[in-house]
């Protein structure tokens, strides 16, 4: 590991949608994203500048980093919505605004407790089932986000939903961890 001192930075003013030449909307064609991503990387990846000077190599690394970052955000419906809402001026404040409907919170807390218990008990079947259910809920939220952002332009409702989604995705992670712990 080293310390790097770089002074030269590419102009990163384009947003992720523009960079990848995709419409600025929540609905996204995954294949198209993959295709645009790969053809951009084919141009800017450091492997294509190994014989060029240091400056060019560093620049290529920064560009490839930028393209990876854009793809990684656009690929995930939750991150994409968060990013898009911020671009549209509706910061969902996922960090600061934790107000959430009580019923939803109760339900999530209960599920989390059950997941912890199943993890402790090594109950793989429960975890698999919880995983499947939550995946369905998350997929449903993804669909709703497209409706709210692209069609109804109801950004406030979309922001609320994104906050919920972040909750659900975190829980999904925990279930994954639990599954890993139980099956290994």
């Amino acid at each position: 590991m080293s310390f790097e001192n770089s002074t030269l930075r590419p102009d990163f003013s384009a947003d992720h949608f523009a960079l990848l030449d995709l419409p600025r909307q929540q609905a996204l064609n995954g294949d198209e994203l993959g295709q645009k991503f790969r053809s951009l990387q084919a141009l800017v990846h450091p492997d294509r500048y190994v014989q060029a000077g240091d400056a060019q190599q560093r620049l290529a690394m920064q560009w490839a980093t930028r393209v990876n970052e854009a793809c990684q955000i656009l690929k995930s419906p939750g991150k994409r919505a968060l990013y898009l809402l911020t671009l549209l001026g509706f910061d969902p404040q996922v960090e600061s605004n934790t107000a959430m409907p009580v019923a939803f919170l109760m339900q999530q807390m209960e599920l989390r407790e059950n997941v912890m218990a199943a993890r402790a008990a090594g109950d793989e079947a429960f975890l698999e089932a919880a995983h499947a259910t939550l995946c369905r809920d998350v997929a449903e939220s993804h669909q709703q986000l497209i409706e709210l952002i692209d069609h109804q332009h109801d950004y406030t409702a979309a922001a609320d939903l994104v906050r919920k989604l972040m909750f659900q995705e975190k829980l999904l992670h925990e279930i994954n961890d639990a599954l890993e712990a139980v099956t290994s």
């Binding site: 590419p10 951009l40 000077g53 400056a55 620049l59 560009w63």
Partner: peptide, 16 residues
Amino acid sequence: NDATDEFAARRMNQSV
């Protein structure tokens, strides 16, 4: 390298 920094950056932008 210094003299070509700007050239490199512009070329990269151009190809993108």
